[in-house]
């Protein structure tokens, strides 16, 4: 017959049904809409920028009003000059990179240790009973507490820094994976088993992808812990041999009573922490959630 091979001719019972089905599909299908760029700018960028400007304005106001001595609360422009100075010296990027590379390397090591550890805790009842509570308890232990021990064991070295990062980040990553796996709907596992996804194939094709949202939340928290731990370690265990990172820069500024430098150090640490989250983890999380229909376009 004429070129309608997939859709039967209307009028026949079969054709009526195909038409009905097409109508149902069109009516029920979820329409997804991308937010226009202008709206993103208005709702996502404008509010934080306003907040930052407001903080700067209050700061400037306090300085002008002379609330406290200049060496305690310097003018915002003094902090800006410190930043400019570092940039013109050519040391700014070096300082930031020293810390960021340490943080990321430590985070990757924590990832490599925390992931199998999380899998083990999630899948083995014995291991879970043995170390599960310790692992969640460790998350509430500030990693600063590990610094003295790490320094005595490893000296003021890079190894001590990494040890502190690992002790802070590994529990977060492992716990994220455990809760991700615990929240996998049993229906997915049953469906997987009826299709023959058992054992390692079941873990690879069903369990791990289903646990991914919880895992990524754990990674996000793991990064925050890595960064915090590293800054604590750099502040306390600073030594010229280790190269100048953000923590050391902050500590040096304190010993020099250089308040603009101290504020700059704090702001840079905050900035790096936020930037890595915004560049790496938030897009990753949003992508995973959105592809599963879990995140409405907020």
């Amino acid at each position: 017959m004429a070129g309608t091979e997939t859709t039967p001719a209307p009028g026949t019972a079969e054709g009526d049904l195909a038409g009905l089905e097409a109508g149902l599909d069109a009516l029920d299908a979820v329409q997804e809409r991308r937010t226009p760029f202008g709206q993103v700018l208005l709702h996502k960028v404008l509010p934080p920028v306003t907040a930052v400007l407001l903080v700067l304005a209050v700061w400037k106001l306090l300085v002008v009003a002379g609330v406290t001595a200049d060496y305690k609360l310097p003018d915002p422009s003094a902090v800006w000059h410190s930043l400019r100075g570092l940039w013109l010296d050519g040391t700014l990027l070096g300082i930031v990179w020293t810390s960021v590379s340490r943080g990321l390397l430590g985070f990757l090591a924590a990832l490599a240790i925390g992931t199998p550890l999380g899998l083990l805790v999630a899948r083995s009842a014995f291991v879970r009973a043995a170390i599960g509570p310790i692992l969640s308890g460790l998350q509430s232990l500030p990693s600063v507490a590990w610094v003295p021990a790490a320094v005595i064991w490893l000296g003021i070295t890079d190894s001590a820094m990494y040890a502190v990062i690992l002790l802070g980040a590994v529990p977060s990553i492992a716990n994220g994976l455990v809760s991700g796996i615990d929240q996998v709907p049993p229906l997915y596992l049953r469906a997987g088993r009826t299709m023959g996804a058992t054992g390692a194939r079941g873990a690879w094709h069903v369990l791990l992808p289903a646990a991914l949202p919880g895992y990524i939340a754990g990674l996000k928290q793991g990064w925050a812990f890595s960064w915090r731990s590293l800054m604590a370690a750099e502040l306390i265990a600073s030594s010229p041999d280790l190269g100048l990172g953000l923590g050391q820069y902050l500590e040096n500024a304190r010993t020099d009573s250089d308040m603009p430098g101290v504020l700059l150090g704090i702001l840079l640490i905050l900035f790096v922490g936020i930037a890595i989250d915004l560049i790496v983890f938030s897009p990753l999380e949003r992508r995973v959630l959105r592809s599963r229909g879990l995140a409405a376009a907020r």
Partner: peptide, 26 residues
């Protein structure tokens, strides 16, 4: 045997086609 549930039990991290392909792969 193949089993179909009251809930669709499709894997949300895969597209419709990939869900079918996973069964073929297994």
């Amino acid at each position: 045997p193949a089993l179909m549930f009251q809930e669709h039990a499709l894997f949300p991290w895969l597209t419709a086609g990939r869900n079918v392909e996973l069964a073929l792969r297994l």
